[in-house]
């Protein structure tokens, strides 16, 4: 019976040690010490041979029973300790999630590019191509081909930087229209022309000797002034909001006849009158008109057969109105505190 006692004693000892183990490592040591190949239980099984044959099965079963019991206690304890270890690790790994994230370098388009691309894309969706031309132009394309012969009083409307008598810094993007018409050789087309232009102006809050323009031109058979109005209406609603209304006022440009200026109902006050619209309810956005027959014929089109409309506007003015920018020079000083404001999306 000494063996049974020994076994009971052993079991007590193991259970106490398993319970006392504080971590998996300690538990493992216990397991190796008692249940391992060199442990006391194995020794007991090995000592089984010395027992009388009839006692062996009974004792064997008993040892195995104890062994299984101990193993189970060990397994439960192990699971507990593992769980505890995970908890400890998680606690240790906890972070302050309110600390800032790792910053990613971002840049963005210039606000004028943003405006120009929006307009480009709108007209592209209506079947327009984007046409570009040189910033330094011939007097011919900048003026003469646009019905502004030398000495025409309307040349005063645009103070010009001349490079020679015949070469100048373009004062508007309209020469691209003249060049495009020449190139298209009588074919119908729709283009939108963005670009830089230059005027003899001293730079101040509202003037810049360099600024941008974007113009549109449609030439083809049977182009009507109502088409111009409809096109501008789509533009105004897309660019400034679905509930915008437009109105056309008579105006004058040498290259269009009739010529108009387009106002939109104020997008800030909706037409009630506010600072943005100078209490008129309307904001002047662009100039437009039906292409002057002289302009068509000078580019090789027969004004009896084809007609066209053109419109032009200033992205600076649109950006200033839309974003409330108060000084045109901001667009050219490249202050990152200004540029970076145009990163986010807008409705």
């Amino acid at each position: 019976m000494a063996m049974i006692e020994q076994l009971t004693q052993l079991k007590k000892e193991v259970v106490a040690k398993v319970t006392a183990a504080e971590n998996v490592k300690q538990l493992n040591e216990v397991r190796v010490a008692y249940l391992g190949k060199k442990g006391p239980i194995t020794d007991l099984l090995k000592g089984m041979g010395k027992l009388p044959a009839e006692e062996r099965p009974k004792m064997g079963a008993l040892v195995n029973e104890v062994r299984a019991e101990v193993q189970q206690i060990h397994d439960v304890r192990k699971a507990e300790l593992e769980e505890k270890a995970i908890q400890e690790q998680l606690e240790k790994e906890a972070i302050d999630v309110t600390l800032p994230g790792r910053s990613v370098n971002v840049g963005n388009a210039h606000p004028l590019t943003r405006v120009i691309e929006e307009i480009e894309d709108l007209f592209i969706s209506m079947g327009y191509e984007v046409a570009e031309g040189p910033e330094v132009e011939k007097d011919y394309y900048n003026f003469e081909a646009l019905n502004l012969p030398k000495g025409h009083p309307a040349r005063d409307m645009q103070d010009t930087f001349y490079i020679s008598e015949e070469i100048l810094m373009r004062t508007h993007t309209s020469p691209v229209q003249a060049r495009t018409m020449e190139k298209k050789q009588g074919a119908s087309f729709k283009i939108i022309c963005p670009g830089k232009v230059f005027r003899r102006d001293n730079d101040d809050a509202t003037h810049s000797h360099q600024f941008t323009q974007i113009e549109g031109l449609v030439v083809g058979e049977n182009i009507r002034m109502s088409d111009l109005k409809g096109t501008l209406d789509i533009f105004a609603k897309k660019m400034f909001g679905e509930d915008r209304e437009i109105r056309l006022r008579p105006s004058f440009f040498p290259f269009t006849e009739p010529s108009v200026e387009m106002d939109i109902s104020c997008f800030k006050c909706g037409g009630e009158g506010c600072n943005v619209c100078k209490h008129t309810g309307w904001i002047e956005i662009l100039g437009a008109g039906m292409v002057h027959p002289n302009v068509l014929s000078m580019a090789g089109y027969d004004p009896k057969k084809v007609s066209g409309f053109a419109f032009g506007m200033g992205p600076e003015r649109i950006a200033m109105l839309k974003y409330g920018v108060d000084d045109i020079r901001h667009f050219y000083t490249n202050d990152v505190r200004f540029l970076s404001q145009f990163h986010r999306i807008e409705e």
């Binding site: 079947g127 119908s188 449609v218 109105r247 006022r249 108009v260």
Partner: peptide
């Protein structure tokens, strides 16, 4: 009165626009 002019869009052959 320019207000009396209706709003239409050019009737022309369908040509895809776009960037070059």
């Amino acid at each position: 009165g320019y207000d009396e002019i209706p709003a239409t869009v050019p009737v022309s052959e369908a040509k895809a626009g776009g960037l070059n």
